[in-house]
């Protein structure tokens, strides 16, 4: 187990290095200079480049990034908040916290509501409850986040005025409602569908027949025997969910005017603030990678057949 985790952490670090390299190459391929404005002269740009080490060869620049990241230094912003350390921007201005909170609540909602809904649908297969849930979840995975978010905004904030149009820094519960729902709805529906399918799959397994033949109560057959087995594919899906929620946060944060990391990332790309792009990419990627690791360990807890030894893979 420990061996496996160590191996996974090494792979995670390697992945992050690759992501850093790719990001670095990509952002340097963006034509023009971050310091190019209407007023800037070539001399000014050259001076700015020298100041931030952008005149050095690419591999030196990349190596400098990696060195400073290993020391925990994420560099300083070039443009958007010139001179401010990126770590301050990300972690101490509430951006990371906002995005993380939003993402975790959305994840929680998707799991806490999605799994029971899937079970209910599977348990009532063929009835109107199942039919209703199937329609909702099938439509749910076809509505793009931005359409849902905007429609919620128009309906509940603009027309009905129950909820604030600007969620801002998420200080009240009302501010959370729409961003969390729009962020998690797709995944909620997907998790419910997945649970239903794998539940029905599990119900048709031989061991369910065995349990029934033993005289186990139907509720217990579902909750004890079928559920745990049907959770395995759902857990697998949670890794992509985390990545997807980060993606969705770009849209949701801009729709509801939340100054989170997602929104900031899009701005930093458009502004070519290299250190900010790099740091946001690494932080968000790390989040996804950590999530994947957690998922794999959760596997072991649910399914004893999976042995997490370092020999594996």
């Amino acid at each position: 187990m420990t061996g496996y985790i160590i191996k996974r952490i090494i792979v995670a670090i390697l992945t992050l290095l690759v992501i850093m390299t790719v990001t670095f190459l990509l952002m340097n391929a963006i034509p023009g200079s971050p310091f190019l404005t209407e007023k800037s002269t070539p001399e000014m740009i050259a001076r700015a480049n020298a100041k931030y080490g952008l005149d050095k060869p690419l591999y030196v620049q990349l190596w400098n990034y990696i060195k400073s990241y290993l020391k925990g230094d994420l560099g300083t912003s070039l443009k958007m908040q010139e001179g401010t350390p990126v770590s301050t921007i990300i972690f101490h201005q509430g951006k990371f916290e906002l995005s993380l909170k939003l993402g975790l609540y959305a994840l929680l909602l998707a799991v806490v509501l999605g799994i029971p809904l899937g079970c209910i649908a599977a348990y009532n297969r063929g009835t109107w409850i199942d039919g209703f849930l199937r329609v909702v979840t099938t439509v749910g995975v076809a509505i793009p986040t931005f359409v849902l978010a905007t429609l919620l905004l128009v309906t509940f904030a603009v027309k009905l005025q129950w909820l604030p149009t600007v969620s801002g820094s998420l200080t009240t519960w009302k501010a959370y409602v729409m961003p969390v729902i729009s962020l998690s709805f797709y995944y909620l529906c997907y998790v419910a569908k997945l649970t239903r399918t794998s539940m029905l799959d599990a119900i048709n397994q031989d061991y369910i027949r065995t349990a029934r033949a033993k005289g186990v109560k139907t509720r217990s057959v579902i909750l004890k025997h079928a559920l745990r087995n049907s959770l395995i594919p759902v857990i697998t899906y949670l890794g992509p969910v985390m990545a997807g929620i980060i993606t969705g946060s770009f849209v949701v944060e801009s729709t509801f005017s939340i100054p989170g990391l997602g929104k900031y990332f899009v701005q930093s790309v458009l502004n070519r603030d290299y250190p900010v792009i790099m740091a946001t990419t690494v932080v968000l990627s790390a989040l996804v990678i950590i999530m994947n690791l957690v998922v794999d360990i959760a596997y072991k807890i649910v399914d004893p057949r999976i042995t997490l030894t370092s020999k594996e893979a």
């Binding site: 790719v22 990001t23 990509l26 770009f250 990627s285």
Partner: peptide
Amino acid sequence: YSIPEVLIVLLL
């Protein structure tokens, strides 16, 4: 697979 694609997509 483990790269969060959308980050790279936006850059691309």
